[in-house]
Design a protein around this nucleic acid. Structure first.
Length: 110
DNA sequence: CAAATGACTCAGC
DNA sequence: TGCTGAGCCATTT
């Protein structure tokens, strides 16, 4: 069922993240209008595992660029994918986060 | 209906 | 400067 709920919104924004870029939970939450639901974004990512098309949850990190989701992916699989896309990751943290940071509020020019 | 959970974020010490 | 506590919203039980 393709129900348009909070998760779907998160999925759509997350799928809009270009390769080599990353965003934060708060940025997506704020874009959706629920700035305080940063946790919900992460919760949506958990459910994103069965979303179609797949959601690049590995491109979604916390506000400091830390791969908090790594623990859920299993191992450093998340960092490997990010590096494969051109994102510099070191010690489970995105380097030049502000440079690779993709802000939906700006990029999508809402 | 109320309580608990969660991949976050901010403020305080 | 680094850790702890509380706040936030939506989903789940």
């Amino acid at each position: 069922m393709e129900e348009i709920n909070f998760f779907e919104k998160v999925y759509q924004v997350a799928r809009l993240i270009p390769v080599g870029r990353v965003t934060s939970y708060g940025a997506i939450a704020a874009y959706l209008g629920t700035k305080g639901s940063s946790r919900m974004v992460g919760w949506a990512m958990q459910a994103a595992g069965g979303a179609k098309p797949p959601v690049p949850a590995h491109r979604v990190v916390n506000r400091v660029g830390l791969l908090t989701a790594k623990g859920h992916f299993g191992g450093n699989c998340m960092a490997e994918m990010l590096e494969s896309e051109g994102v510099r990751v070191e010690d489970d943290q995105v380097q030049d986060f502000k440079t690779v940071f993709w802000d939906p509020m700006v990029e999508l020019a809402l």
